[in-house]
């Protein structure tokens, strides 16, 4: 299944997240939007790291992944991204 959610960060940019999951595991995460992240590859590494994470740990794991040293994000914080991913998954699971 794929969970999708758009969230405009107050005072920041738009996040469009997508979480592909099966059973209790996340298969793939994509965080799109008009934010800036430096270096870009570090942001993509954080996304990739979330493949295989148990769904009930996604928000927590995302907070860690997007807070990695050296990654600077403008227009959204790691907490915004983590919460949006968690909410996307939750809404897909209860619907």
């Amino acid at each position: 299944m794929i969970a999708r959610l758009d969230h405009k960060v107050p005072g920041g940019k738009l996040l469009r997240v997508e979480v592909e999951f099966e059973g209790g595991s996340v298969l793939r995460v994509r965080v799109a939007g008009d934010f800036f992240a430096h270096p870009e590859a570090s942001f993509e590494a954080a996304e990739a790291e979330l493949g295989g994470v148990p769904t009930d740990r996604l928000a927590e794991a995302a907070l860690g992944a997007f807070s990695r040293p050296g990654l600077v994000i403008y227009g959204a914080g790691a907490a915004d991204i983590a919460a949006t991913l968690g909410r996307a998954l939750h809404e897909a699971q209860v619907s």
Binding site: R16, A32, G33, D34, F35, F36, A37, E40, F43
Partner: peptide, 9 residues
């Protein structure tokens, strides 16, 4: 589009 945006979206 910006680097992180989805073309389709």
């Amino acid at each position: 589009i910006g680097y992180f945006q989805s073309m389709e979206a």
